[in-house]
């Protein structure tokens, strides 16, 4: 694993109380023992089905949710023990881009005001300096001419342009780390590629680290260095993206890949392989390996009893599955 990590979690757990009527009846274990690291200038894709805990994990890395236990290091500092004021200072070094550019941009603000806001909130620069920074950020996300776009309102822009505004806002404070949560899933294929290339360009220029949250393995393949596959609150596999996708180790990773078609006319003659059942409830997840009720390699008495540790299965390849038991355990 990258020694020079900018962001790193240790056995991170985030539980949400489930309330019914007057009492608390349980907990949603949204993130349940996650070790993840993101290196400097690295993009890590976090992939998994709806509800597996990706957004919660991403928000935790930004210091926006209080974990139940575990640690979150940002540039060596443990965020979980910081005061709200100290956290706020740390957050200046981070940025975020959400899925829905409609919902995340204030409709009554001009583009100028939206992009300027983080500077105002953090009391950065004079009015003139801020103006220069806003226009530069708009140019950087290719909203040219910047002055023209600065005066627009979100509803006057296309989906792709709105997402560019969100990106300009995220990078204006020159963050070292940006969480992008499904940033392109509502966009057309071509615009997706355009936006993802923009992230790549920003990374090259400013050395930013990205967490790219998505359920789309195909874009993750081309736009991330490493990938982490998440299932029911846990990371089941990590490794260099292309290696993981061409030779998946964990049965769940394999199942995810099998579910996704490439454009290929012969697809219509075959049924897709899908594991039976649904992802489990995070209130009462299955004992042992959380994937065991759906896994084709399930070993009774083992997978349903013990929690598989992360096995190191090759250079930078990790998989939490008992099928790798003979390999060395490192975590």
């Amino acid at each position: 694993m990258t020694t020079e990590s900018l962001v790193r979690t240790e056995e991170l757990r985030i539980y949400f109380p489930v309330r019914k009527f007057f009492g608390t009846v349980g907990e949603v274990k949204a993130v349940d023992g996650v070790n993840l690291s993101i290196g400097r200038k690295e993009t890590v894709a976090l992939v998994g089905e709806s509800g597996c805990g990706k957004t919660t994990l991403g928000r935790a890395l930004l210091g926006l949710v209080k974990p139940k236990s575990g640690k979150i290091f940002f540039d060596g500092t443990d965020l979980t023990i910081l005061s709200e004021r100290e956290l706020k200072l740390m957050r200046r070094r981070m940025g975020v881009v959400f899925q829905d550019p409609y919902a995340s941009l204030n409709p009554s603000f001009t583009v100028y005001r939206i992009v300027e806001e983080p500077l105002v909130v953090n009391k950065i620069g004079s009015k003139e300096e801020r103006r220069e920074m806003v226009l530069k950020a708009l140019e950087e996300v290719k909203l040219n001419p910047a002055e023209f776009f600065a005066s627009k309102y979100p509803h006057m822009l296309s989906g792709g342009q709105r997402q560019r505004v969100a990106i300009a806002r995220a990078i204006i404070t020159k963050p070292e780390f940006v969480v992008t949560d499904e940033p392109v899933s509502m966009l057309d294929a071509s615009i997706r590629v355009e936006i993802l290339l923009l992230f790549r360009e920003i990374q090259k220029k400013h050395g930013v680290s990205f967490l790219y949250i998505t359920h789309d393995l195909a874009t993750a393949k081309y736009f991330s260095d490493r990938i982490a596959i998440m299932y029911a609150g846990r990371i089941v596999e990590t490794g260099p993206t292309k290696a993981v996708l061409s030779e998946p180790l964990h049965p769940y990773t394999q199942a995810l890949i099998d579910a996704i078609p490439d454009p290929d006319p012969s697809n219509r003659f075959v049924m897709r392989k899908i594991p039976p059942g649904q992802p489990p409830s995070l209130v009462n997840p299955p004992k042992g390996c959380r994937f065991h009720p759906r896994c084709p390699f399930f070993m009774q008495g083992k997978c349903d009893v013990l929690e598989p540790p992360m096995y190191r299965v090759g250079v930078e390849r990790f998989s939490a599955c008992f099928l790798h038991e003979e390999k060395v355990t490192i975590k």
């Binding site: 071509s190 997706r192 195909a218 081309y222 292309k242 890949i257 996704i260 490439d262 454009p263």
Partner: peptide, 23 residues
Amino acid sequence: ELLINSVPFLRQDKEPTFIRGSP
């Protein structure tokens, strides 16, 4: 042709490209 080129393939290695301009 360009639309197909913008699709990221999972089982082939081919960098997707975008279509310049707007709809």
